[in-house]
Design a protein around this nucleic acid. Sequence first.
DNA 1: GCCGGTGCTTGGAACGATCAAGGGGGACCG
DNA 2: CGGTCCCCCTTGATCGTTCCAAGCACCGGC
Lengths: 356, 356
Amino acid sequence: MSRPESRLGAHLPVSPPTLADVAERAGVSRQTVSNAVNNPDLLRPGTLERVRQAIEEMGYSPNRAARNLRTRTSQLIGLRVSPVQEGTANAMMDRFVHTLVETSALAGHHVLLFTGDDEDPVAGYDNLLRSTAVDAFVVTDTYLGNPQAAWLAAQRAPFVAFGRPWDRASARHPWVDVDGAAGTRLATEHLVEQGHTRIAWIGWRKDSPIGEDRRSGWLTTMHEHGLSTTGLASRVEDTVQSGGEAAAVLLDESAPTAFVCASDTLAMGVLHTLWLRQLAPGRDIAVVGFDDSQVAQVYPVGLTSVRQPLEDVAVEIVRALQSLLSHQPTPEDGVLLTPTLVVRESSARPEADVPA
Amino acid sequence: MSRPESRLGAHLPVSPPTLADVAERAGVSRQTVSNAVNNPDLLRPGTLERVRQAIEEMGYSPNRAARNLRTRTSQLIGLRVSPVQEGTANAMMDRFVHTLVETSALAGHHVLLFTGDDEDPVAGYDNLLRSTAVDAFVVTDTYLGNPQAAWLAAQRAPFVAFGRPWDRASARHPWVDVDGAAGTRLATEHLVEQGHTRIAWIGWRKDSPIGEDRRSGWLTTMHEHGLSTTGLASRVEDTVQSGGEAAAVLLDESAPTAFVCASDTLAMGVLHTLWLRQLAPGRDIAVVGFDDSQVAQVYPVGLTSVRQPLEDVAVEIVRALQSLLSHQPTPEDGVLLTPTLVVRESSARPEADVPA
DNA sequence: GCCGGTGCTTGGAACGATCAAGGGGGACCG
DNA sequence: CGGTCCCCCTTGATCGTTCCAAGCACCGGC
């Protein structure tokens, strides 16, 4: 009676039952059904059971649009997908995204993807924010000078960043990041344990704070062990070719026995150079990459690599989002997680040419 | 006057302007503003300009929840993210997802990610459908026996599949797929042109229709050229190790000079075996993979690989979704796209040991 | 038997947009 | 000059949910 449209014809998709339909069937009012869903404690056990059964029988699920309109939330978290970089090994985002989707589902949220204008990076955020399409954002590419975080903070929009605010410590927004220096420290310690003393670094250009962070882990570990780093560092673009060329120069000029790289992409370049020179990775020269990409995993000579705990990052981000959205002040500003080292053949112990 | 909440205080996030706010400022009614947004043709140019200016000044954007409630749409497309497979090279999904997000944005849609229960694969779909959270789905993993497509069809839920319906041709839902056989045909033709006559196949187990499709391209091309395929085919699991073992067996027993593989993962296994045997890929033995994964791109010896036109697939899927959602009957049931071959060093011309 | 409190339930209003129908004014025609 | 049409705009109703305040039954105490 209350839903004439359901009588239109069986060949059309039947519109789903509403709160009122369930209420009628259970013999209670709308609000009671709503309470059964959102505040079960308010109902007498008998009533609750009756309503629950009606919900079950009719396959009721609250209409999201109506709920969103009333509660002024969307239960959605916006995530900007960055352009795909071909020719690099860093495809770790799906690992992160998957856990993010799973974890936020547990918190009752879904993940909404969107792209950004290249010329106006905040346009996508602005649209979603103004149309109240998402409750919060997860910002992933917090490179230096990226205006997104600052803009979102200025808009008082809830968001959590994957990545530290590099530019100024005054930015007080929640963030989660992986300690890159700790990762390269692990890598360097591992190589020192294997008996290496001439360990080279191949990283990114100086204006990349992430690259400098990773470099610092190598540098301090070398110095802690009293090892020289003179002529053993190189800063290049993040491409296979650059990594290979840097490795060639370092091998010629400084004769390192091991390489620590800021990325698996660079490490692949090093492996290429070793291959050209008939040097066996792991036996002749050790190589360690960063990101534990699929390349590192399927390369014939398994590539030792620093693995970011992306699953934990996603969990922490969702945790921060929840306290942000429930207006509980976050206890600390940021969470810094420690990566692990996945040891494979490319960093096996050198045999006799290095003094133990 | 009409928005008392905006007076609460400047330290709270100001709630965005509504249709009524814009109407008041522009000196028109709500409906006129709505028309200015959705049906500009209905307005007199002068009025339209005035409303547009008010919209611009106030930074108005229609509240999505309200619009969704009224129009019974969500402008969202659901995409289930499948679990990440570690240790394989097939991370092509982000290429697809990115274009999907971009293209559907042009059509006014956003992409919503969700995960599925492993035990109840349709649970995620069911929830989103019943709560009218999404307008349609994109189904990606249409392996044999996957109940999702059939279930969605039974629910009369709008969806487009990436992948042909393998089980029964009677399934009449829109789909977009890549012609795997055409891809392996390209690969095989390419190798024949290089002078190869003993071209081996390493694929997946027989119960994989995708694998059988790809295998058929190799098989028919071989036969068309009058080449024998006896003892040159192998069916294994999709792992690096399996690929390597299969290559070793084939090399020992049938002495092929080239390999066509159903995936880059298998091709990596082949390259590993070649490396162990001191055989140079491209010079001694040619290898072709499938998917043009990042591994193929950054491997020191570039891996020739069949590249799926994932960007085109996404575009076609959005196109099909649009006609589906606008209730225009789709002209054809499915779209089959042709992949391309990316030639790299691993399939360079053999030198003298193969008769031209 | 009356009163007050407790605990569940109820109807009305609101969220902000679109749909359907109604109205005012000018142009055009008779 | 009156009627009709059309164009452009306005008004009231509605989508399905949650918030709010009031209603009502029940129980114990006096």
